[in-house]
């Protein structure tokens, strides 16, 4: 059974309901690893000299899963919001991600009153906007390597037409196309 996405455009991500679970796990791993480094460092710095290793381990044990959990919650809410918006709007563009980021920020600040919700939602939306923008930029910059390139032909008289632009990644200098059958084209 295919997932819920209407226009399957990105085969590097699982389709919609499954991506929520997948990304929660991925975000937890990211947060746990990053939190281990951060809190390991902090635990090392903040423990007495004879006890540094134990301090590091204790700090990591108690705080890194919390950081991972925070990342996981953020990612779960964001993906749930994103999938919901895709299903509601029926289109797939960057606005879904931005609005889902704002919703996530807002939900996570829901206990602190309307002003905090507004500020947090704005920050979430801005962060997602920046991420989507950077992604789009990278996509446009990398599209140069997919440009169509004319095949290099071995013509006896004229010099071979130069293959344009940067070194093509693959499939560019394909074997020269065969001449069409002459039978009916005279």
């Amino acid at each position: 059974m295919t997932g819920g996405r209407h226009d399957i455009s990105d085969t590097s991500r699982d389709p919609c309901p499954y991506i929520i679970v997948y990304d929660i796990g991925a975000a937890f791993c990211m947060g746990a690893i990053g939190g281990s480094i951060w809190h390991g460092f902090k635990g090392y710095r903040n423990s007495p000299r004879g006890d540094r290793f134990a301090g590091t381990i204790a700090s990591v044990k108690s705080r890194a899963p919390v950081v991972g959990g925070g990342f996981a919650v953020w990612s779960g809410l964001f993906n749930a919001g994103d999938c919901t918006l895709v299903a509601i709007r029926g289109k797939e563009d960057s606005w879904n991600a931005i609005m889902a980021g704002a919703a996530t920020g807002g939900i996570l600040a829901a206990r602190s009153g309307p002003q905090a919700i507004a500020v947090s939602a704005a920050f979430g939306g801005i962060i997602l906007g920046i991420m989507e923008g950077v992604g789009a930029m990278l996509g446009r910059l990398s599209s140069d390597s997919y440009k169509p390139v004319a095949p290099v032909l071995d013509l006896p008289a004229a010099p071979a037409p130069a293959a344009n632009s940067s070194a093509p990644e693959d499939s560019a200098a394909a074997p020269a196309p065969s001449a069409p059958p002459k039978r009916f084209f005279q």
């Binding site: 169509p148 004319a150 032909l153 037409p161 069409p180």
Partner: peptide
């Protein structure tokens, strides 16, 4: 697309 190839091709 690049320019069309010369005639036989």
């Amino acid at each position: 697309l690049p320019d069309p190839l010369p005639e036989p091709y």
